[in-house]
Every structure is written in C-alpha cells, then in structure tokens.
Amino acid sequence: MKLLSRRIWGEEKMLNIKNLCAFYGSIQALYDIDIEVQEGTIVCLIGANGAGKTSLLKSISGMVQHSGTIEWNGEDITNYNSVQIARRGIMHVPEGRHVFPGLTVEENLEVGTINWRGFFGKRRDADELTYVYDMFPRLKERRKQLSWSLSGGEQQMLAIGRALMGRPKILLLDEPSMGLAPLVIEELFEKIVAINKKGTPILMVEQNASMALEISDYAYVINQGSIEISGAAKDVACDDRVINAYLGVHAGQC
C-alpha cells in the first residue's frame, strides 16, 4: 500500500492531512477530511458557501480548533500555533485580502518578511522585493501609497505579494477572486500559475470553480464539511455532480 502510494504520489507529499475535524465551540465544521498537496502542484478546493473550505485553511494555519493530523514534510504540525506555522513557510492569504490599511504598499510587503526576519533581524529582502515587483508591476507603481486606497484587485495582489515576501514553501489562497471583475480575475489567475511555475505549490479555495479547475492539477470538492469528490482536476471538471452543482453551462470541454 505504501509502495503503491509512493508510485502514485512520488516520494514527498509536502502537505498531508488526515482525519481533520474542525470546531467552532460546540459546532463541528469539518468531518474527517483527508487532503494531500504534492510538490509543485496547484490543488483547489471547491464547494458552496459554508461548506468548510475556509475552515480547512484556517485549521492548517492554526487559527481554528481542530483534531486529526496535519503533516508538513513529515513533521507533525497539527498543534502548532500560527507563528510556528508561518515560520515553516506555510503562508495563508486570507479571504477578503486583509491588507494593513494604514501602511503603504511597501511597508505591507516589508511586514511580510516577519516570519523569517523576526522583530530585530536585518533587512535583507531585496530579492523578495524584486520578485514581488516583477510579478506585480502595479504594486511597484503604487509602493508609496497607503494600501486602503488600492483597488480590490491591487489589494489582492498586495496580499499575495505580502505572503510571497515570507519565502513561502506553500501558498494557501482563500478566495483570491472574491469581488473582482472578470478581467482582473483572469490576470490574477495568470499570476497564480506563474508563481506556481516558479516552484511554489498552491492550495487554493475558490468559488469560481471553472477557472480554478482549469489551472489546478488536483481538485477536492467539499460539501457540508466532508470531501465529496476528489481527483485530477480535469476528471473532476467532467464529473456530472460537479457540472450540475458548480459549473453549469461552462463545462463544454469534456
């Protein structure tokens, strides 16, 4: 069994989640979730509102009470707090962007280095800064601007850029397309693919199922707190249940 899974998944599963349950007080939000993310891939989680997608990401980054096991490169990180998890390069870009409104774009990016720099470390973020500015030239144009004054798309780019400053080994993206215009979403997804091409695996939660499935390697469908369907993204995109519930008319390519 182990050999078989190695054959299929390769030697390293970077992120390996088993039997994950999440709780808000007495309310259970996730039931026995199993999820894996391999090196270099994009994995997406799709599902309706309130299905538990965000709770899953929050459990990984230690922001929600949870049980089960979460393994990161073989290390059990289930009970780590958010600071310990960020130090391991697991960068969570939250839903709704959450940029620091009173800081400028560049200051926001600078704060993103805290997980490897600490409070008193020297500023050595030139490489990261060029990487982010090359990826999102618009941020460079606006680097002296306070971030509350940015447009929604720019704020999303800033939130992702801020996570990139933290030398991510994996990016957890929560609803990157939320509230954005279709053209902006398209640009953003191109950037996400570009970031992934540079070697950063991505675990993405998306409502925009068709676009998410298009760029993903692997997909999970969450419904009412448990995994309903999983498989390679192109297979999931052709699953009847997925077409009916999440894709509708867009599923022409099967």
Partner: peptide, 13 residues
C-alpha cells in the same frame, strides 16, 4: 500591522 489587522498579522507569523 498587528494593531491594524490582528488576524492577518497572525497569519504572517
């Protein structure tokens, strides 16, 4: 940063 958005600050570490 932590004062302006403590949730995001925690996620960044």
């Amino acid at each position: 940063a932590a004062a302006q958005d403590s949730y995001a600050a925690q996620l960044l570490g």
